[in-house]
Computed example of a mutant assay.
Amino acid sequence: MKNISDIIEGYLKAIIEEGSKEQIEIKRSEIAEKFQCVPSQINYVINTRFTQDRGYLVESKRGGGGYIRILRVRAHTKADLIEHIIQTLENGASESVTEDIVFRLIDEDVITKREAKLILAALNRTTLVIPLPARDELRSRILCAMLLTLKYEKSEK
């Protein structure tokens, strides 16, 4: 059974995909009213499910006429996307950042769900049992190696 955060995320993504500009402007209070939840629940969904690592830009304006704008950012090619992700991994990668990247790769049809499970299992904190910050650096290096392999394997086809 889906929780309210999953339902709100799915609703917002569906609206984004329907639009031709791949962006939406919402009022937090209106969405909260629609789903009969507190506005902070909407903030939680936006802050955790619509991150840069997942391929979204979020802008907000507070006040009476305030809004939250969510914009879907897509790379021109899968190779461009992989290259962009590799550049963001220079300073290491936490487990949550890695999960966001993997979810984006699934969303953009770069990897399958099976490949995602393998990547996440290999980069999980229970697999990489070393202290921080070395764990995040190692995770980043392994993920970069996997992405480079995917980039060149996809370009050969």
Rank of each mutant, 00 (worst) to 15 (best):
Thr127Asn: 02
Glu33Thr: 08
Arg72Glu: 10
Ile7Tyr: 02
Arg49Leu: 01
Ala122Pro: 02
Gln23Cys: 07
Tyr44Ile: 05
Ala93Trp: 01
Val129Leu: 15
Ser94Tyr: 04
Leu138Val: 15
Ile24Tyr: 00
Ile106Phe: 09
Ile86Gln: 05
Val73Thr: 07
Lys34Gln: 10
Asp100Gln: 09
Lys151Met: 11
Asn43Ile: 13
Ile68Met: 00
Ile70Leu: 01
Gly92Ala: 03
Glu153Ala: 04
Ile8Glu: 03
Ser5Ile: 05
Gly64Glu: 08
Ser40Leu: 12
Leu123Ala: 07
Ile101Ala: 11
Ile119Glu: 01
Lys34Arg: 13
Glu18Met: 11
Glu17Trp: 06
His76Leu: 15
Ala14Gln: 13
Glu99Ser: 05
Leu118Arg: 13
Ala121Arg: 14
Ala32Glu: 03
Arg135Asp: 13
Glu153Asp: 13
Tyr56Trp: 02
Val110Lys: 02
Ile4Leu: 14
Ala116Met: 04
Leu147Val: 12
Glu33Trp: 02
Tyr67Lys: 08
Glu17Asp: 14
Thr112Trp: 10
Ile26Val: 14
Ala116Glu: 09
Gly19Cys: 03
Gln87Trp: 03
Lys113Cys: 05
Glu83Gly: 03
Asp6Tyr: 11
Phe35Pro: 00
Ala75Arg: 06
Gly55Ala: 12
Glu153Leu: 12
Lys117Trp: 02
Glu99Trp: 05
Ser140Asn: 07
Ala116Pro: 14
Ile82His: 07
Arg135Ala: 14
Gly65Lys: 05
Cys144Gln: 10
Glu33Tyr: 12
Gly92Met: 05
Thr127Val: 09
Asn47Lys: 11
Leu89Ile: 05
Ser155Thr: 15
Cys144Tyr: 09
Val38His: 15
Glu59Met: 01
Pro131Trp: 11
Glu99Ile: 06
Ser94Trp: 02
Ile130Thr: 06
Ala79Thr: 15
Ala116Val: 06
Glu90Ala: 10
Ser155Val: 15
Glu18Tyr: 14
Lys2Pro: 06
Ile68Pro: 00
Glu108Gly: 14
Leu118Ala: 07
Val38Gly: 08
Arg49Ile: 03
Lys151Leu: 03
Lys13Phe: 04
Gln23Ile: 07
Ala134Ser: 12
Tyr56Arg: 00
Ser60Trp: 03
Ile26Phe: 04
Ser60Phe: 07
Gly63Trp: 11
Leu105His: 11
